[in-house]
Simulated scan of single mutants.
Amino acid sequence: MTGSLRIGILPTIAPYPVPDFIHHFRGAHPHVNLSIDEKENASLVRELRFGNIDIAISTLPEDREGILEIPVYIEKFVAYFSSECSHAQKIIASGSLPAEHMWILKEGHCVPNGSMNFCKNKDIGNHIYEAGSIETLVRIVDRNGGYTIIPELHIPFLSENQKDNVVHLNVNPPAQRCISILIKDDFIRERAVNAVLETLKSIIPDYMMEERLKKHKIKLR
């Protein structure tokens, strides 16, 4: 495979797969000119439609006319709370999330069910500062107290002491997000899409992956 491949990715996803993705992809496809850019969801869709990127790795956007979604893996959210708020651990674990103590991420807390869709409901959470990265959000919680919701793949980035402040949420439906490959519905570079998929499969834990993609390649036509 040769030529160029331009990938856009959501900033709240990028820290986890991108470093290994670059390493594995360039090793497997040394003749491809790879470029990766972080953009918010609306920008990713716009860049896809304009042809400025070939593939997006993101959650499913609201405006998806002309966009083909290929679900790749499911990532759960967990609660991260300040060590000063350890008394709230059981309350948070039960799924009762006290809004006044919650810090919000600018984009990324979009979970496809009403009770957890924090990015839509501005009445939920602390909006003094809407963080643009998970790392900033964790540091805000450590310094100011309260708690937040972080993706499961961020846990390995925490220190051992910080990992003690992680609580898995007992909510139904589960707090999770589907990470997908997004392309224009007339995109024909099947080998490129499968190259991205195979690289993600080598990075993302197997239990997160969509079952049908573990055994089958993507067929565009």
Rank of each mutant, 00 (worst) to 15 (best):
P11T: 00
V72K: 09
E210Y: 02
L153Y: 10
P174C: 12
H216S: 13
G66N: 02
K217P: 07
T2C: 00
H29I: 05
L158P: 01
Q89A: 15
I55K: 05
G3Y: 00
N170I: 09
D63N: 09
P11N: 08
R143Y: 10
S43V: 11
H29L: 10
I92Y: 04
T199W: 02
F157L: 12
I150Y: 04
A93F: 01
N33C: 12
S159W: 13
P71D: 12
A88I: 09
K90M: 08
P17Y: 07
L169E: 15
G3A: 00
I183G: 12
S180Q: 14
P174G: 14
E75Y: 01
I53M: 11
I74Y: 14
G95D: 04
I155Y: 12
N144I: 01
T59A: 13
N117A: 10
L97G: 03
V138L: 04
K76G: 06
I55D: 06
H24Q: 05
F81K: 06
I55R: 03
K120N: 11
N121W: 01
M1E: 01
I155C: 12
V196Y: 02
N52M: 12
K39W: 09
I74N: 12
N126S: 03
P17F: 03
N194K: 09
D142Y: 01
T148N: 08
M208L: 10
P11L: 01
Q176G: 08
G51C: 14
F118K: 02
K90N: 14
K76Y: 11
S83E: 09
V78L: 05
E75R: 05
L197V: 08
V111W: 04
L153C: 08
L153K: 09
P30N: 15
N33Y: 13
D206I: 07
A131L: 00
I57R: 04
R64W: 02
K201D: 04
L197R: 06
K90R: 14
R46G: 14
G146T: 02
T136E: 07
I57E: 03
F187W: 04
R49V: 06
I181P: 09
S94I: 06
I134K: 00
W103G: 00
E210M: 15
C119T: 06
P71R: 08
I218R: 03
N33I: 07
C110Y: 07
S180C: 15
L220D: 02
F187P: 05
T136K: 02
N165C: 13
T148P: 01
A131D: 00
A131N: 00
R221D: 05
S133T: 15
I155T: 11
H109Q: 11
I204W: 04
A131Y: 01
I188Y: 08
D186V: 03
V32Y: 11
Y73A: 07
L200A: 06
D164P: 01
I150W: 06
I128A: 01
S82E: 06
H29G: 04
A192K: 10
P61W: 05
K215D: 10
D20A: 13
G132T: 05
